[in-house]
């Protein structure tokens, strides 16, 4: 899995390329939380993320909790399979999916 980050002032875009599973989730977590200070708008682009397990959901939940305190968060370009996971787990209710 690869992570592409694009920061524009207080706006941070994170693009995830590849499967987000137990083994790759820690990598995302590390990359995400190394510079979230002052970020007010966090966007995940999931166009090229075909799969996520609960380990990935855990990172999204953690990010959502953080952003609830300092701004807003949304995920975009979610594929159908991942969307299904979000729906099963009720994440579609708590995450802004654009």
């Amino acid at each position: 899995m690869d992570i592409i980050k694009e920061q524009d002032g207080s706006k941070l875009l994170i693009k995830i390329v590849g499967r987000l599973d137990t083994n790759s989730a820690p990598q995302l977590e590390e990359a995400l939380f190394e510079n979230t200070d002052g970020i007010e708008e966090l966007v995940f682009d999931l166009a090229e993320m075909p799969y996520t397990s609960s380990a990935g959901l855990r990172v999204f939940l953690k990010a959502q909790k953080l952003m609830n305190q300092q701004g807003s968060m949304k995920v975009i370009n979610t594929c159908a399979d991942v969307m299904e996971v979000f729906e099963i787990t009720g994440f579609s209710d708590i995450i802004n999916i654009g």
Partner: peptide, 16 residues
């Protein structure tokens, strides 16, 4: 159904 801040991190895997 809980809001994000009240959600627990664990238990999602087995649930799914």
């Amino acid at each position: 159904t809980l809001p994000a801040d009240e959600r627990q991190i664990g238990g999602l895997g087995i649930f799914m």
